[in-house]
Design a protein around this nucleic acid. Structure first.
Length: 936
RNA sequence: GGGCGCGUAGCUCAGCGGAAGAGCACCUCCUUGACAUGGAGGGGGUCACAGGUUCGAUCCCUGUCGCGCCCA
């Protein structure tokens, strides 16, 4: 018995449990051992995360694919798991410590702190997983992994060590993006450029050997800078070698103000004569460009900042006593001052000394940390790097060769653009939470990289010739390092598991465009490097980690704004699920997803789709009320009733459309087709047209209609399941109470594979009935006719007369018609309808307002004439006749014929209207074919 | 500066070479025996602008103007 109303909140939890108990989502089901494998790895959400709309979209897409392929009989693995999210998680726990007024991370010590993080993970790390389950995600939850669990850590170790041994991982001292708040290096990708209003300071650097005189430009050179505080670390001034203004100064020196250091004026093309003063200060330790200039000219790198971005002179070793200016004692007082305070102080002093020529307002792009949101400092440190430029080569080639395809394709341009300009990937982080780098140092700094401490020790002992104490590298790896291994590490690599054998490479990756670089690109690199297919007697074949990459875009709020906590416009998917149900949310997202647009999501949209779920529910109730129970072995091909043959025909068409759309990742087309089929075909017409039979006398027709109604509903439930898994699974269960037993849960049942149900005759007949009803309804509404009216078929063929009698019941009820009769010609004073070539007349003499009808006919007449003129223009054009395709010319001729016929009918109707109250109306073109399938 | 994308009905978006589409919103009517979370009908668009290619352009090309995003 189907409940009166569908309550998602009551049903969804129960269905989830049922799936879990049945192990419905388990990969490697024995009965599917021979089936094709289908696999997707989930983009692992951060353990700290909670479900947001982006997750909801991303995971619904994957779930649709997995449920679809599972129903198609494949052995599906949707591999779930979470990411340890180094910085994010460490921040969460540190904040918690602070809130609870407990000792901070450093006071606690590394080991205890990590214990604390694990405890936090045990307690709170499952949140996001439970939320994904509420969404309906059909992951194989028994295989859930975590980027820091034992197996994945083993994979990380192996990859690090092997890449190191191949020379693809190395340690280097160079500038990194340093986060002075989190006190760690970060990768280029974690740096967000923020346009900031600032200033451009023009500073005068006195030229050596001249007495500085603010009035005499020959005694100084002006450099322009946005970061005056870094001048303490300047080691040169650069001018363009061809710049006539400065050419003569190249090779001379300036005395760095406040410090007294003697630094050279060099010629380098980096200096842009158009910008600022044309001369720039060079600070190799604090600017990426200056670093390169410094390397070209062999300049010292003088770091003047601490890790917290405070002024230090500790490394300022270039103060020979004879170079120290009298000012330096004063300058030294800046030690320990924050960079921005130091900037003010330095500018103030320079101004006092007359060394500031001018200050211009200037907008520039300042790098900020995406986590800490503080200004990132280019900072000279030792870090570990991956030689990405090398690893990227096959990753580019595979996409070029089409081994992996982006959907939509245009993302390939973005991918290539980045991959071809890739920089070394800085993978070390000065954090505690993460995979500690497997590198140990001897007393002399010699590094030993190994899979274990013992192995490193052995190597070291051999190297030193005696047992030597080693110290492990304190740093951990970038979180994305382990994520890059996700497609194979989750399947058990480096062990040779049967899962790897069966489910790798994966079928498709579904992800947002924002992590193409962070994640997709790196999985390509690592996957190609570590997962080649061995071929005995031949070079190993390169295997891509996924065949397709489906890229989706953002979910925005109803007004198109990006959802963000600070704006307060975040729509919580769980709140939506509570209110409308997971199915409504999922269906809304699937109907709206478009490759080239972000999704705008408003509550109204979700409500509409909740209404769709209700509609489906009520259709099922109707079927049940009418005793339409599934019949064992029912074959829709055997149906005799035209109506039943018609719905079978339509069901096959809808199934084909939905299947083709999902196969090609056109999710909104698939959802839209399902929506229209259920609502506009099954509910609006099949249910309505079947009522006379279902409520009529018992007999074979009624039996067949019951069986067909139940069969078609069953197909609908299957077709909708990938999109709306809960309500469909519930209906599957409820409808199983009667009729033959179900073999399996819906999630494991067969996807409709319909054939041989196409029936043009049935389509023509039912289509005609539908068009007739629609046409009559249209007239009624337009003429404001509430009364029940009669219909007369004018000059109809015997077949049509026969047909209309067969459908008389339905026509009477749905079009509110009193009786249907036939006559040779339309009775006087009737409105004429042309329905698929047949004329139906409504005798309405004295009932309708004829002036309104006259106006309408005049308008129709204009339209018909315009159509004829337009077609004639084509047909009279010799070029068109000569060059257009034959079938196009044919079509135009048919159009002309149709329009001419229509015009004649309208003229006739108008004439009769003038003559004495006889109204004749030709149905406007766009209404003559209200139903064929294209309308649905 | 380089790249990608978008300007189609009031709103959100399909269509991408042969007569302008959907959903929502809006207006009118309907307590018809699954559903008012419903049913029926209707109005509404020089497809951003300007050139070009074509027998024919919302659709292809070029440019202009707006609006996003990514990279430097």
């Amino acid at each position: 018995m189907i409940e009166k109303t569908y309550q998602p909140s009551e049903v969804e939890g129960r269905i989830s449990q049922a799936w879990e108990q049945a192990g419905a989502f388990k990969a490697g089901r024995p009965e599917r051992a021979q089936a094709d494998a289908y696999s997707i790895v989930i983009p692992p959400p951060n353990v700290t995360g909670s479900l947001h709309m982006g997750h909801a979209l991303n995971n619904t897409l994957q779930d649709v694919l997995c449920r679809f392929e599972r129903m198609r009989g494949k052995d599906v693995l949707w591999q779930p798991g979470t990411d340890h999210a180094g910085i994010a998680t460490q921040m969460v726990v540190e904040r918690q410590l602070m809130e609870q007024q407990q000792p901070g991370r450093r006071d606690m010590g590394r080991e205890k702190f990590l214990e604390r993080v694990w405890a936090w993970k045990a307690e709170s790390g499952g949140t996001i997983v439970n939320q994904l389950k509420r969404l309906g995600a059909s992951c194989d939850w028994s295989r859930e992994r975590f980027t820091m669990d034992e197996g994945l850590s083993k994979a990380v170790l192996k990859v690090f060590v092997e890449l190191y041994r191949e020379g693809l991982i190395y340690k280097d001292k160079r500038l990194v993006n340093w986060d002075p708040k989190l006190l760690t290096a970060i990768s280029d990708l974690e740096v967000m450029p923020v346009e900031t209003k600032g200033h451009l300071w023009h500073l005068r650097y006195p030229i050596e050997g001249k007495t500085f005189n603010a009035e005499d430009p020959s005694t100084f050179i002006v450099v322009a800078t946005t970061r005056p505080e870094t001048m303490l670390g300047d080691s040169a001034v650069a001018v363009h070698p061809d710049d006539e203004r400065y050419k003569a100064l190249i090779g001379k020196h300036v005395i760095l103000p406040l410090v007294g250091r003697r630094i050279p004026i060099i010629g380098d093309e980096y200096s842009d004569p158009e910008k600022g003063s044309g001369a720039v200060k060079i600070t190799p330790a604090h600017d990426f460009n200056d670093f390169e200039v410094g390397k070209r000219h062999g300049l010292p790198q003088i770091n003047v900042l601490t890790i917290e971005a405070k002024i230090t002179f500790a490394e300022n070793v270039f103060h020979q006593p004879d170079q120290v200016s009298a000012d330096f004692e004063e300058t030294k007082k800046l030690e320990g001052l924050d960079r921005f305070a130091a900037r003010k102080a330095i500018v103030a002093r320079l101004e006092e000394m007359g060394l500031v020529e001018k200050i211009e307002p200037h907008t520039n792009v300042v790098p900020h940390g995406d986590r800490s949101n503080v200004v990132i400092e280019p900072f000279l440190t030792d870090q570990w790097y991956v030689n990405a430029a090398e690893l990227v080569k096959p990753a580019i080639a595979m996409v070029r060769e089409g081994k992996t395809s982006f959907v939509p394709k245009n993302w390939e341009a973005t991918y290539f653009n980045w991959m071809e300009n890739i920089q070394p990937w800085c993978i070390s982080r000065q954090l505690w939470w993460g995979h500690q780098i497997p590198a140990w140092y001897g007393p002399d700094g010699k590094v030993f990289v190994a899979l274990s401490e013992a192995e490193a020790q052995t190597e070291a002992d051999k190297h030193y010739g005696q047992t030597t104490a080693l110290k492990r590298d304190e740093d951990v790896l970038d979180t994305w390092f382990s994520s890059a291994l996700w497609p194979f590490s989750t399947l058990g690599w480096p062990d040779k598991t049967k899962e790897l054998e069966r489910f790798y490479p994966t079928s498709v990756l579904v992800t947002g465009f924002d992590i193409i670089f962070f994640w997709v690109a790196r999985m390509m690199m690592m996957g190609l490097h570590f997962m080649p297919k061995e071929r005995p007697g031949a070079p190993a074949e390169q295997i891509v980690p996924f065949k397709d990459i489906y890229i989706h875009r953002l979910v925005r709020d109803a007004s198109g704004a990006k959802m963000s906590k600070s704006k307060g416009n975040v729509v919580d998917p769980l709140g939506i699920i509570d209110e409308f149900g997971a199915d409504a949310l999922r269906f809304t997202l699937m109907r709206a997803v478009a490759p080239s647009h972000d999704i705008r999501l408003g509550p109204q949209d979700v409500e509409n789709n909740r209404n769709f779920a209700t509609k489906l529910w009520n259709a099922a109730r109707f079927v049940e009320f009418n005793g339409a129970v599934r019949v064992e072995g029912f074959d829709p091909k055997s149906a005799k009733e035209t109506l039943n043959r018609w719905i079978a025909h339509e069901t096959q068409k809808a199934a084909a459309e939905i299947t083709a759309a999902i196969e090609t990742y056109r999710f909104s087309d698939a959802a839209g087709a399902a929506y229209r089929f259920v609502w506009n075909v099954y509910c609006d017409w099949y249910v309505e047209l079947s009522k006379p039979v279902l409520t009529g006398a018992d007999g074979p027709a009624k039996d067949e209609t019951r069986a067909m109604a139940a069969w078609a509903l069953d197909e609908i439930i299957k077709l909708l399941h990938p999109f709306m898994p809960f309500i469909t699974e519930e209906l599957w269960a409820v409808t199983a109470e009667q009729g033959p037993k179900r073999g399996a849960m819906l999630a494991l049942s067969d996807w409709p594979a319909l054939a041989g149900l196409s029936d043009d005759k049935a389509e023509a007949e039912i289509g005609w009935v539908i068009d007739l009803i629609t046409a009559i309804r249209s007239i009624r509404a337009e003429m404001n006719l509430n009364a029940v009216i009669p219909v007369v078929l004018a000059g109809a063929s015997a077949t049509t007369q026969d047909l209309v009698q067969r459908w008389a019941d339905v026509i009477k009820r749905l079009a509110r018609v009193s009786e249907i009769s036939s006559a040779a010609t339309a009775p006087a004073g009737s409105v004429q309808l042309v329905v698929r070539g047949e004329v139906a007349a409504l005798p309405l003499k004295g009932v309708v307002d004829l002036s309104a009808e006259r106006a309408r006919l005049a308008k129709e007449m204009q339209k018909a004439e315009a159509d004829i003129v337009r077609v004639d223009a084509k047909l009279n054009n010799p070029n068109f006749m000569a060059r257009a395709k034959e079938e196009v010319v044919e079509e135009e001729k048919e159009k002309r014929e149709e329009a001419v016929g229509r015009k004649a009918k309208i003229a006739e109707a108008l004439e009769r209207l003038q003559g004495g109250g006889v109204t004749s109306l030709s149905l406007p073109r766009n209404r003559t074919r209200v139903y064929p399938s294209s309308a649905f």
